[in-house]
């Protein structure tokens, strides 16, 4: 793994924790899950489950994009509870859709996205370079392959400086090298004391002591 930019090397997030009690979610007529209770204890929460078990819905609920039928979601930073309004800016979300505008270049997209957060001013071009994506910076996103787009989208989380990353199927469209690359990002985030919530069918290749698993199928 390439080393991060010097400005970021020793950066550490304030510890952030998620507490969920009695969560119940429906999609139309279908109850996805109920009585879901969860406390994050490790830096990476791996949410698995069969198709249709409500993984994406859970991530959307936890980032306040969707409302649950019942239950409370409590984000805590340094022991203090955060209101939804305080919590949302701390979350960097990469959903099924990459959040990249096809007409703009990768660098322009990332600049716009970091402008929405700007907790730490990273240099976009520098960051792309550090993560072996410099050759994509000036190309319109529509001209990138799906895997390349995925990488740019995932890099957005690092650039945002958010302590919480919520990744929905980050490995989709990524080849083996791409998965390694994404794991590198995650490791960087874990080192910086960040928290990551992700859904994936694959086991994230991280130190198992860092990963907590939640199975929605059961």
């Amino acid at each position: 793994m390439n080393t991060a930019a010097p400005s970021r090397a020793h950066f550490r997030h304030t510890h952030i924790k998620l507490d969920v009690v009695g969560l119940e979610c429906w999609r139309g007529d279908l109850q996805l899950f109920s009585e879901l209770t969860l406390t994050t204890s490790r830096p990476v929460l791996h949410i698995c489950g069969i198709n249709g078990s409500g993984k994406t819905t859970l991530l959307k609920v936890l980032s306040f994009l969707t409302r649950p039928e019942q239950g409370t979601i409590n984000w805590q930073q340094a022991g203090a509870s955060l209101s939804p309004r305080e919590a949302t800016p701390l979350i960097s979300y990469v959903g099924h859709r990459d959040g990249l505008n096809g007409v703009l270049t990768a660098a322009e997209n990332l600049e716009w996205a970091t402008g929405l957060h700007r907790r730490h001013r990273h240099d976009v071009v520098q960051c792309l370079q550090d993560h072996q994506l410099a050759h994509l910076a000036r190309r319109p996103v529509a001209a990138l392959s799906a895997g390349q787009r995925r990488r740019v989208a995932l890099l957005r989380s690092l650039l945002s400086g958010c302590p919480v990353w919520i990744w929905d199927e980050p490995y989709a469209n990524l080849d083996e090298a791409g998965r390694q690359w994404a794991n590198g990002l995650l490791k960087e985030h874990v080192t910086a004391n960040g928290l990551a919530l992700m859904t994936t069918h694959l086991q994230p290749a991280l130190d198992s002591a860092a990963v907590q698993t939640l199975d929605l199928s059961s």
Binding site: T88, Y93, G95, G99, N101
Partner: peptide
């Protein structure tokens, strides 16, 4: 466009 490419989700989460 923003809805289809997912930018809208980012806007909603931006604070």
């Amino acid at each position: 466009g923003d809805f289809e490419d997912g930018s809208l989700e980012l806007m909603a989460l931006s604070g």
